[in-house]
Every structure is written in C-alpha cells, then in structure tokens.
Amino acid sequence: MENTIKVERAILNITQDDLAKKIGVSRQTINSIEANRYVPSTVLALKLSEIFRKPVNDFFKLSEND
C-alpha cells in the first residue's frame, strides 16, 4: 500500500501532530502511515478522507505487492 498523505498534509499546511490530533491518534502513528510502515484501518482512512475532503482512493493506492 502506498499513500500520499504527506503531500495532502502539505496542501492543507498542517503538521503531523495537528493531523494526529484531528483524527485521534498519536503523531508516531501518522509518521508510520506516511512511511508505509503501517496500513490504517478503514475507520482511520475514512477520517483522513474527511479531513482531506477527498475519496480514500485518491491518497491510498495498492502497490504491486498487495
């Protein structure tokens, strides 16, 4: 799974900590998601979708290994 959360976050001009607080997780979790070390649950993905005002598919993409 690949994602462009870092880009989306930059567009909104918010820090990892700001985003973490908005969706109720720790900053380290956002960092792990951005670094593709952790694939979030559907609930978290939908919360991110709400923040970015975009469908989940726009910032999460399946990679060849998936």
């Binding site: 109720g24 720790s26 380290q28 979790t29 952790y38 979030p40």
Partner: peptide, 9 residues
C-alpha cells in the same frame, strides 16, 4: 498514554 489502533496492533 496515547492508545490508538497502531498501539493495539
């Protein structure tokens, strides 16, 4: 202290 789904996992 900062329990979230990743910590649970």
């Amino acid at each position: 202290k900062d329990e979230d789904e990743m910590v649970v996992k």
